[in-house]
């Protein structure tokens, strides 16, 4: 199963600890997570269901290619990491 991890910054606000899901794409994994935590969706996706501009997603340490449809494929044991831009200096 693919493991979905949100940066601590997001976890603190949205109560989204690491979870594992059967999913073939990033979009599928996120949908599973949104089913369990509806607040997550509006924080991660915009009203077009595209990735928000201040969010980045990495699969197995590599930045995803498809920010619009989140179609990047997952391996059965993929690790998905979702992070948010930080502006503090």
């Amino acid at each position: 199963m693919a493991t979905l991890t949100f940066t601590r910054h997001l976890d603190r606000y949205l109560d989204c600890p690491p979870r594992s899901f059967e999913a073939a794409t990033v979009a599928e994994a996120l949908e599973r997570a949104f089913d369990e935590n509806q607040r997550l969706a509006s924080y991660i996706l915009d009203d077009q269901r595209h990735l928000r501009k201040n969010i980045a997603i990495f699969v197995d340490g590599h930045m995803i290619r498809d920010r619009r449809h989140l179609s990047d494929a997952l391996a059965p044991d993929s690790s998905i990491y979702v992070l948010q831009a930080l502006s503090g200096g």
């Binding site: 928000r52 501009k53 201040n54 969010i55 980045a56 930045m63 920010r67 948010q84 831009a85 930080l86 502006s87 503090g88 200096g89």
Partner: peptide, 14 residues
């Protein structure tokens, strides 16, 4: 800008 896209103003300050 390859990492984050410009336009989202969800900036949190220290």
């Amino acid at each position: 800008q390859c990492l984050y896209r410009e336009g989202e103003e969800e900036g949190l300050t220290c």
